[in-house]
Design a binder for these strands. Structure first.
Length: 274
DNA sequence: CAAGGACCCTGTTTGC
DNA sequence: TGCAAACAGGGTCCTT
């Protein structure tokens, strides 16, 4: 489940491979990928373009192609792999292939076919992001004033608010649970009940969890792979996520699993305040 | 109108 | 043991 750290890892690996190169050929094997646009139209519009930027916004990858932006969301099981790197990449569920002008082959794999590719010009892109994404949690705009205002006007749980991409772009199930544990806040707490001190702690906790995820090149639970084919290592450092029954490393109480905001949720029932 | 649920998918896990 | 049902979850759309 690629979240901000996983997508940022993908971006950092793809940037040096793609930047400055042209797309010699593009073939898309899954018509779902580009809906509602047809794969043929997207193939034709991508082919021959030069990649002048490789960016990320929330969980979206943005390949800047001059007059158009190729925007990719990996959703649950999407991944890019570059070949020539030993040919060890999986052969199943390849939904698209891109060949660069230097012969590099970029493969797009997506078992569950939830991922999306779209082409937007700069105006469309800005509108697309501004109407659904809040600030980058690692950026300056994500501060106590912003989060405090959002939480104060909410009647849902803090976990649901963290998962809302309009609160902080790029947070998913893993980093929501990990940051709430770091902050010592129970995931089912009403968002509006957090104190100023808790909001400050949560901002720091979220940033730390995301930065740790980036340092560890993301978390590989099942499908996620970096473009060079390697696994992330963040799953080895989870404090609570998927660790039901194991001792909390802060207070030794067993980690509990429950369901919050419709998602599997792991937390320490002893040191995350209800 | 905010909030919760269904849905899209397919491979894996669970439960009878 | 075998097989069907449940589950996983990001984002969108629909309902409450």
């Amino acid at each position: 489940m690629p979240e901000l750290p996983e997508v940022e890892t993908v971006r950092r690996q793809l940037e040096p491979v793609l930047l400055g190169h042209r797309l010699s050929s593009v073939s898309i094997a899954d018509s779902r990928l580009t809906r509602p646009t047809s794969p043929q139209v997207v193939e034709q519009r991508l082919t021959g373009r030069q990649i002048v930027g490789v960016e990320r916004r929330g969980k979206y990858l943005i390949f800047e192609l001059g007059t158009v932006n190729w925007i990719v969301h990996l959703r649950m099981t999407g991944s890019f792999t570059t070949t020539d790197a030993g040919g060890r990449e999986p052969e199943t569920h390849i939904r698209a292939r891109v060949v660069l002008d230097d012969g590099t082959v970029l493969r797009y794999r997506d078992v569950r076919r939830f991922g999306t590719w779209s082409l937007l010009d700069d105006v469309e892109r800005d509108a697309f992001f501004s109407e659904r994404l809040g600030p980058e949690p690692l950026g300056e705009a994500f501060d106590e004033a912003w989060l405090g205002t959002r939480l104060a006007g909410s009647r849902s749980t803090i976990k649901a608010m963290l998962l809302d991409q309009a609160t902080a772009a790029g947070v998913g199930n893993i980093y929501a649970d990990e940051s709430l544990w770091r902050a010592g806040v129970h995931p089912a707490r009403p968002a509006a009940s957090l104190t100023g001190a808790e909001i400050e702690r949560l901002i720091d906790a979220l940033r730390e969890a995301l930065q740790q995820g980036i340092r560890r090149q993301g978390a590989t639970l099942r499908d996620y792979r970096a473009p060079d084919g390697t696994n992330g290592a963040m799953q080895d450092e989870f404090a609570v996520y998927t660790r039901e029954g194991e001792p909390c490393e802060r207070c030794a109480a067993p980690v509990a699993k429950t369901r919050v905001a419709g998602r599997g949720t792991w937390f320490c029932p002893s040191c995350q305040d209800k």
